[in-house]
Design a protein around this nucleic acid. Structure first.
Length: 469
RNA sequence: GGUGGAGUGGCCGAGAGGCGAGGCAACGGACUGCAAAUCCGUCUACGAGGGUUCAAAUCCCUUCUCCACCUCCA
């Protein structure tokens, strides 16, 4: 049984063959930490989290690297906007990103390098490119360094575009570029920009262009040739195209497979274009349980666009709760099983091997749940325990095992409301008992409440209660 | 202008020439004191128009609508 993955570069599903047998190196573009993450960002995270879990299930030793781009134009723009140092803004958003990972059950990457921590590696890469004739410092003395796209015949290979068909950048003319499509490896420090956002290079002080950091960091941590490079489909061009060009032009074979997840749209367009991006992860998890949100993001194929609607998310939650209901009931009956001993359904495994066909895998899972529910009628049995372990194993591979400790206490805690409702119900009964002068019954209710830790006092405005203690 | 992707039943969402994924909802039945949950069953499909084929959601042509990217993007 082999694992097949869709490779954006060749536009085909290809059998996965690792650079090093038994190991897989995955790099996916984390985030430019210019704002807190929304549901679209976290969809990418969840996609690669599932990929990673599947590789581990398949016996691979996974090295997962996701970058943090903590310096770029947008981060600097926020400094002015928010009147706060750029590095403080970047760090705050990085922590928000980590909180979102944790909330939605994404395992931590093996490493998460920051762009600002890898300036020497970038300078080294630029020097290689200049030496090989694929990059040049701008003639205008700005300190910018550009990649020379005309010097690299393969430019456009990833996105299958011809250089001459591309729309030229509108800002190119004034910036000392040899060709309008040349992209900045490095941006010279400009008057008015914070000095903290500049680093020395042989070509003057400046800061990374957007693409250079990924090539530098992936090379450092995964090597010149590695297995999978991923990210959102919107990164394919220019970001990944440029990474590919600058890395290969420097003599590095680079990624063997390119994987891109589709966008999550809101009101018919990409979320990042929506004003204010209302679907911040931190907001959504106030209204929906994180595990339900994860199910919603995992359930469609990763290469299908998700049109976000509240109703669809609600429906996903209902669908997941059916699965969860079985897991909880079966666990009560069997006194628990170790999911690590569970066997996934063969259809589940086959689906996942086929470019992570989660929808088909979920169909297999639903079948197992149905079988389990039938077994549940007869109470505990070895068959039920085996089924439960299998279901939990499959759920775990999607990061959706509801009994995983990571999900405990996640989501809105409604217990205070529930306690209030229960106490009120009892106080109503006590009121009725007093109204019919059945003081023995009324006192019995008050005593039961006191035993449970609730003190009741009668006041002219009616009874009030407090949690004793 | 260039490069891709999508349009499937009330809804979500797979599939990519034959044997109609799956879920949610609805309806019928079983179970239940009543519910809930669960199980069994039923129903509704492939944007439009042509064509190829014994057979088309799937291939071809025409057409409509939508989305992404073309140097800010996950």
């Amino acid at each position: 049984m082999t694992l097949r993955l869709y490779d954006t570069a060749t536009r085909a599903v290809r059998e996965f063959v690792p650079v090093t047998p038994g190991q897989v190196g995955i790099y996916h573009c984390g985030l430019t930490v210019q704002g807190p993450p929304h549901l679209g960002h976290i969809r990418k995270e969840v996609t690669f989290d599932v990929l990673r879990r599947w590789f581990e299930f398949r016996g691979y030793c996974v090295t997962l690297v996701a970058n943090i781009t903590d310096i770029d134009d947008k981060v600097l723009a926020k400094e002015t906007e928010q009147d706060e140092p750029w590095w403080s803004i970047a760090y705050a958003n990085e922590r928000a990103l980590h909180a979102a990972y944790a909330a939605l059950g994404c395992l931590a990457p093996t490493y998460e390098p920051r762009a600002t921590g890898h300036i020497p590696e970038m300078v080294e890469l630029m020097a290689q490119l200049i030496e090989r004739g694929h990059a040049y410092p701008a003639d205008d003395g700005s300190g910018d360094v550009y990649f020379d796209v005309r010097s690299w015949p393969d430019y456009g290979a990833l996105s299958h575009q011809r250089l001459d068909d591309m729309e030229p950048a509108t800002d190119a003319a004034a910036r000392g570029k040899r060709d309008p499509r040349d992209f900045a490896l490095w941006k010279g420090h400009k008057e008015g920009e914070p000095v903290t956002a500049s680093w020395p290079t042989p070509w003057g002080r400046g800061r990374p262009g957007w693409h250079l950091e990924c090539s530098a960091m992936v090379g450092k941590y995964l090597g010149d040739e590695f297995d999978i490079h991923g990210g959102g489909l919107d990164l394919r061009f220019p970001h990944h195209e440029n990474e590919l060009a600058q890395s290969t032009a420097a003599g590095r074979p680079f990624a063997r497979y390119w994987m891109h997840n589709a966008m999550l749209n809101l009101d018919g367009e990409k979320m990042s274009k929506s004003v204010g991006s209302p679907l911040l992860v931190s907001e959504v998890v106030k209204r929906f349980r994180p595990i339900d949100v994860r199910y919603y993001l995992v359930a469609p194929h990763y290469r299908s666009v998700i049109e976000f609607t509240e109703a669809a998310l609600q429906e996903a939650a209902t669908a997941f709760q059916r699965i969860e209901g079985y897991v909880v009931r079966a666990t009560e009956v069997t006194a628990g099983v170790d999911p690590a001993t569970g066997e996934p359904d063969p259809d589940f495994t086959a689906a996942m091997d086929d470019d992570l066909a989660v929808p088909a895998a979920l169909a297999a899972l639903q079948g197992s749940v149905r079988e389990g529910n039938k077994l549940l009628v007869d109470g505990d049995s070895p068959a039920l325990a085996a089924n439960l372990a299998g279901v939990r194993r499959m759920l775990g591979l999607l990061g959706l095992d509801p009994l995983d400790p990571g999900w405990q206490d996640s989501g809105p805690d409604r217990s205070a409301e529930v306690v209030d409702g229960l106490v009120t119900a009892l106080l109503d009964q006590r009121h009725d008992a007093r109204a019919r002068r059945d003081f023995a019954a009324a006192d019995a209710i008050r005593d039961r409440l006191r035993e449970a830790g609730v003190e009741v006092e009668d006041t002219p405005q009616g009874p009030r209660w407090t949690v004793a203690g």
